[in-house]
Every structure is written in structure tokens, then in C-alpha cells.
């Protein structure tokens, strides 16, 4: 009898510390954040007032909120396909048995372990108008140097390029693991039927990588919607707010303007948007996903 009770209780006892930790650092602060979004709390003061839906009304009429949201989507729309395509290409290239393949895998993985702040500084050197290597290279083709991060037309693209460079290594490893999980027998059967490289890629590899692609799309979407550090270091949201992302705007509102209540309201807005996008990802990209690669 006691043994049965123990068996029933034991799993809950084991997960209790984890659940408690999650409640403390994620769930409860999130609920508190929702509560704060209905106040005018300034973060430094114990005094605050209940303002009802005023922060949400302001959010709807705030041009910079919508612009920063638009910029965030622009960033995500370029980043996600870039990360998926380049990660897959690299994984396909590195999924072969050639000498020194581990060295290549390590090289491509390195950006993943580079702190984003350090990467931002490195890319600022690359983009430097006079001493940057990018302008040197385009100069070899007779093109005039550009100030990549100070032109509204090129600033966001320049940050996206860095974002792809940063994310490709880690996602390449995920693709590589998935590729190695695909049974050889599918390819052998296709070869017997006379399938070439492209046909095998199109009809076997890509469909069987769908769960992995879904995972990468969802995680990259979430990280794109939270883009902050690179904008903070490289452009400060400029020029002309062209790289102002939603998290950067929320950060400024909370820690520079001391409007924590309004920042909390925008965070709730961002949470809802992320939820909807993740649902759409899941609903549409998840269609026909086959988790059985064996």
C-alpha cells in the first residue's frame, strides 16, 4: 500500500524543484508583468497608480511601437529563410566522409559560441566605411565604399547578415544530426529506382527533415522577435529608427524612460504576437511532418 503511494508521489517529488524554479523565475514574473501593464509603475518608485487599459490604448496609437514591430518582422523575414537555407546547405556539405571534416564542422560552429556583443563589434569593423574588409572587397570590383550601418537602406540587411552568420553554426549541427538519422535504405531504394542527387534531396531528404526545419523555424522566429543586443551595440536603433526592434524599444521605454508599466504592456503585446506566430508556424509548417525517419 505504502509502496503504491510512494510510486504515485515520487514523480511529483522529483519534478517539484524544477517546477518551483520555473514558477519563481518565469511564470510568476510573467503574471506580475501582466499586472504591471495596467499601472504607471516607474521601476524606481514604490508609488504607482492603476491606469486600466491606458497603456494598451497608448500602444495602439504609438507609431514607434508599430514601426519597431514592422522592423522586427523585416528582420525575422530575412533572417529565418537565411538561417534555414544556409544551415541546410552547410549540413549537406559537411555530411560527407572527407578528411578533416571535423575541422570544418568546428570552424562553422565557432560563431555559435561567440558572444553576441563580441560578434557585433567584429561586424562593426567589417562594415567600417574606411577600414572595413567589406568595402575593401567591393572596392576591388570598382564599387564605391558605403557606410553600411548608417544608411537606412542597408543597416537592417547588414544586421541580418550578422544574425545569419551567428545562427548558422548551431542549426547546422541540428540538421547534421537529423541527416545522419535518415536511414540509408531510403536512398538505396531510390537509387535502385534510378533517382539522382536532386531527386533524392527533394523527395527524401527535405521531407524527412521537416520536423527539424519546423524546430529551426520556431526557435529562429523566437530569437528574431527578441533581437536586441546587436541593435543596441551596432546602431542604437538608427539611422532614422530603421533598426529599432520591438525589444530594443521596450528596453528603452523601461530602463531609459523609466516607464515600466508601458514597457510591460508592450511585452504582453509581444508575447501575444509570438504566440500567434508560433501557432501559425505549427499549423502550417507542421502539416505533414513525419517524425519517424527510420
Amino acid at each position: 500500500m505504502w509502496y503504491r503511494i510512494q510510486r504515485k508521489i515520487a514523480p511529483y517529488v522529483f519534478i517539484f524543484p524544477g517546477v518551483l524554479f520555473y514558477l519563481m523565475v518565469t511564470f510568476i514574473p510573467a503574471i506580475v508583468g501582466v499586472g504591471l501593464s495596467f499601472t504607471n509603475w516607474s521601476i524606481i518608485s514604490p508609488k504607482f497608480k492603476w491606469v486600466g487599459l491606458r497603456n494598451y490604448e497608448r500602444m495602439i496609437g504609438d507609431e514607434l511601437f508599430w514601426l519597431s514591430l514592422k522592423n522586427t518582422f523585416r528582420y525575422a523575414i530575412w533572417l529565418i529563410p537565411g538561417v534555414v537555407i544556409f544551415s541546410l546547405l552547410l549540413a549537406l556539405l559537411l555530411n560527407s566522409k572527407v578528411r578533416g571534416i571535423t575541422i570544418f564542422r568546428t570552424i562553422y560552429y565557432l560563431p555559435m559560441v561567440t558572444p553576441i556583443a563580441v560578434a557585433s563589434v567584429i561586424w562593426m569593423w567589417i562594415y567600417d566605411r574606411r577600414t572595413g574588409i567589406l568595402n575593401y572587397i567591393i572596392g576591388l570590383f570598382g564599387m564605391a565604399p558605403r557606410n553600411w550601418l548608417n544608411d537606412p537602406k542597408t543597416a537592417m540587411g547588414s544586421i541580418v547578415a550578422m544574425g545569419i552568420w551567428l545562427s548558422v553554426g548551431g542549426n547546422m549541427i541540428i540538421y547534421l544530426a537529423a541527416l545522419q538519422g535518415i536511414s540509408r535504405s531510403y536512398y538505396e531504394a531510390a537509387e535502385i529506382d534510378g533517382a539522382g542527387y536532386w531527386q533524392k534531396l527533394r523527395y527524401i531528404t527535405v521531407p524527412l527533415l521537416k520536423p527539424t526545419t519546423l524546430l529551426i523555424v520556431i526557435t529562429t522566429t523566437m530569437s528574431a522577435l527578441r533581437a536586441f543586443t546587436q541593435m543596441n551595440i551596432m546602431t542604437q536603433g538608427g539611422p532614422l529608427n530603421s533598426t529599432m526592434t520591438i525589444v530594443f524599444y521596450i528596453f528603452n521605454t523601461a530602463f531609459t524612460d523609466l516607464r515600466m508599466g508601458y514597457a510591460a504592456a508592450m511585452s504582453v503585446g509581444l508575447f501575444l504576437i509570438t504566440l500567434v506566430i508560433t501557432f501559425i508556424d505549427w499549423k502550417f509548417l507542421g502539416k505533414g511532418v513525419n517524425y519517424d525517419a527510420e
Binding site: D128, R129, R130, T131, P145, R146, N147, N150, D151
Partner: peptide, 12 residues
């Protein structure tokens, strides 16, 4: 504005 960092330019 396309000249790049004014600090680098002044130092150089």
C-alpha cells in the same frame, strides 16, 4: 555622414 566614425577619422 557616410564617412564613418569621426573618432577614427580624426585619429587617422
Amino acid at each position: 555622414p557616410d564617412f564613418g566614425s569621426r573618432w577614427t577619422a580624426f585619429k587617422e
